[in-house]
Simulated assay, not measured.
Amino acid sequence: MKNKILFIAFLLLVFSCGNDDSEDNVSIPEVSTEDGRRMQVSDLYDFQIKVNQTAHVALLDGLVSASHDFSSNPTEVELLALQNAWKTSFLNWKSNEVFNLGIIQSSFIHTRINQWPINFEAIEENILVEETLDNDFVSSKGANTKGYSAIEYLLFHDTSNIVLIELTTANNAEKRMQYLLALIENLNEQSIILKEFWGEVEPSFKSNLETGVNGSQNQVVNAIIAGLESMKGTKIEEALNAESDGVIYFEAYRSEISKEALIENLETLNNSYLGDYIGEEGFGLDDYLIEVLDRPDIDIAIQETFQVALNDLYDINGPIEDTLVSDIEALDNLRVDLQTIIGLLKTDFSSAANIVVTFNDTDGD
């Protein structure tokens, strides 16, 4: 009887092994982890970072030309052309600033291109010095007195008529014009340095596929999180929490294109996640989630929250500066939207992809 029981048990074991389809239930990744990382960071560099750096330099060449035209013929028409050239270049920068990562971040080039808020009192003091206000002078000064935001202050801090007078016939007009031209020249120079620097680090950026804080994909995800945190915190929450005159906490309130700047930021982050670049469909972080990690659930959640935030931003009527009076709820909804995306990236995505989150917000959320 004992032998019969053992024989039956043996047959059941053989039958179960022969019919074991557990291997069929194991999801085999379509793309290996290393190949997925390689494609994601390479496409991001080739189709986003490299393309945008080239476009940024070209636009700043145009800003330099517009500044020379205005200096030679300081009319209201030329001032308007210069202001528009600044807006176009600045908005392009919003698609570049989010990739302040790794060795690029440690070089502090980004802060020399745009540091916000600026110290307008120090700018006014710089204009009054006796020395020549040229590129070397600007280079010697702190980041909060140069770059995009300093130029915005000179071009937009008052009505166009007053700005024109300040730069042409008012006391210290010549020095003010010198400083404006020097700021634009210095900004152009820094953009070229940044573009060349990215070219130098391209090989290491594309080949650094390790896990942990030094890996390129890890740095990219942290840069996206940092970009979202910046939008939510310093670009929205400070305006919401201000006891008075909250409008001054919007990044581009003088030129009234803060909303357009936020849209450029958010669209860039969304497209970088999707691998949806201008004229190219690359391998994005969404593809990495699906084809490497087999986590379409996380991808769906992230894509949906990005779209909700974008729609809420698009739906804000007029300059975002006006929402503090007309529709503060819309601004708070946008803040919540951004926090939802941040939460998904910090927890769900980072856990699935073994990302070490090194950026932490300061408000405890």
Rank of each mutant, 00 (worst) to 15 (best):
L101I: 11
M39I: 07
L344H: 10
E281G: 11
I123T: 02
E329C: 05
E78L: 12
V336F: 12
A226G: 05
I151G: 02
Y179N: 00
Q105A: 13
I113E: 05
W116I: 06
L285H: 03
I298F: 02
N265W: 09
R37E: 04
S204Q: 14
A353F: 13
V14R: 11
E196R: 01
R112P: 12
L331K: 07
T323I: 02
E267H: 03
E210V: 15
T347E: 15
H68D: 12
G279S: 15
A173F: 03
N92H: 01
K2L: 15
A242I: 14
N171Q: 12
N52C: 11
H157S: 14
L345S: 07
N84C: 05
E229D: 10
L12F: 14
I290L: 06
K175W: 02
S204M: 09
L338F: 04
G275N: 03
D24T: 14
D286R: 07
D136K: 05
I341H: 00
D286I: 02
L285K: 02
R176V: 05
V336T: 14
N172D: 04
E34T: 15
A223W: 00
L128T: 07
A81K: 10
V51H: 10
Q105W: 01
V51G: 01
K94Y: 09
M177P: 00
N186T: 11
E210K: 12
N92I: 02
D294Y: 06
S72D: 15
V325W: 09
Y277N: 03
G215K: 12
Y273V: 10
T211G: 13
R37T: 13
K94R: 08
V247L: 06
L82A: 00
D24Y: 14
N222W: 02
A85D: 03
L60T: 13
S27L: 15
E30H: 10
S16C: 14
N208P: 00
N311H: 08
I342M: 02
G199K: 06
Q83H: 12
E291H: 10
D276L: 06
S65N: 10
H110G: 03
K346C: 07
K195N: 11
L183W: 08
I113A: 03
G142H: 09
L344V: 10
K2R: 09
Q48D: 07
D361V: 08
F99D: 00
P29S: 15
E97G: 02
E229A: 08
A9Y: 07
K87D: 07
T75V: 04
Q219E: 12
I257V: 11
T159M: 10
E210W: 11
R176C: 00
A58L: 11
D276M: 02
D46H: 09
A239H: 06
V201L: 12
I103D: 15
V336G: 11
S95C: 08
T211N: 14
V41A: 06
V220A: 07
D245T: 10
A182L: 00
E202K: 12
G62H: 12
